[in-house]
Design a protein around this nucleic acid. Structure first.
Lengths: 181, 181
DNA sequence: GTCTATATAGGGATAGAC
DNA sequence: GTCTATCCCTATATAGAC
């Protein structure tokens, strides 16, 4: 069973945008890799920006799902721990991680993109759910760092002699400890 | 006493690259803001890439200075704490922080840049100095996160009601605690 | 050291045939 | 749904005058 062209465009675009950067990747390159012409892309997506939008949509939907869940829960330490655990689960979904990396690496190029603001808002909202009203600055910073700790494992992989699994476990442990502050 | 044109080019380029992204910023824009023409830029820098190289050079030199220092010290907990403190000092030097932000936001656009590899190596080397041979995975991840914790304050500034100073102090506290693992 | 003018290339996007 | 052909624009970079 073959994927449809639209999905294949998304996949190739995501990979090239991540590897080379958004601006540095031309529609010609994407088309060539797929063995079609630029014009064919325009049948599936109205603009280059539209391709990005379709990618971000996938991720925003997941973040908002998570946000909705956490807001339906009592604001307890266990809820916060569970939020970190669930976030880690999202993070290993293949598509999600790649989109995240793409967005991290192309912040300025996409700065004006309206979809990005929605995503940033969602991330800040998630982070906010980890904090409490009367928290000290140290607690605030510490907990804001918790979700990021889970990302950290990803760029460590390249340098270290640890296995991916060891890093994942350790990152989770560090993230949960950051919540304890 | 007026700055020379070369320095002014660096300043404007750095600001625009950071705000708009490297690829999205044309030499024409830089030239217009300075009130000169594109061709004038080419007198001072051989290529657009050369401007970036000149900016990164500033930062690599500082990182390597720091690396040289830490390697001349005994490998004690106090040395590691002092490394974190010194890194934080570098981070608030105006030029350094702006270059850092520029590099963070334009990772992929600059991915092929040879200067960047030198910088990445220097950062990993610094991080490595925070770890010890027999460290557990949790310690490794935790300490690798320490230097990053200092950066974290920067993107928190936008959202939070904390003052810049409170965030700086809290980030330092969090970084030092991450070393304790 | 800065200018004007231009070479050369590549980008995103569209029209219209098949 | 994909093609060819093309429009229009902007980019980096250079040549040569001042």
């Amino acid at each position: 069973m073959r994927e449809d062209t639209r999905t294949r465009i998304q996949e190739v675009a995501l990979r090239l945008f991540t590897e080379q950067g958004y601006e540095a990747t031309s529609l010609r390159e994407i088309a060539e890799e797929l063995g079609v012409t630029k014009a064919a892309l325009y049948y599936h997506f109205k603009t280059k920006d539209d391709i990005v939008a379709s990618l971000v949509d996938l991720r925003v939907a997941e973040l908002e799902e998570l946000l909705q869940w956490v807001r339906s829960q009592p604001k307890t330490p266990e809820t916060r721990r569970e939020l970190v655990r669930r976030y880690a689960e999202y993070l290993v979904r293949p598509r999600y991680l790649e989109v995240t990396r793409f967005l991290e690496r192309n912040q300025t190029a996409l700065r004006a993109h309206p979809k990005l603001m929605k995503m940033r808002e969602a991330m800040l909202a998630l982070t906010a759910e980890l904090s409490e009203p009367g928290a000290t600055p140290v607690q605030r910073v510490s907990r804001a760092l918790a979700l990021f700790a889970l990302h950290a494992g990803k760029w460590m992989t390249q340098q270290d002699d640890l296995t991916e699994d060891e890093i994942a476990k350790a990152s989770m442990e560090v993230a949960l400890r950051l919540l304890e502050e």
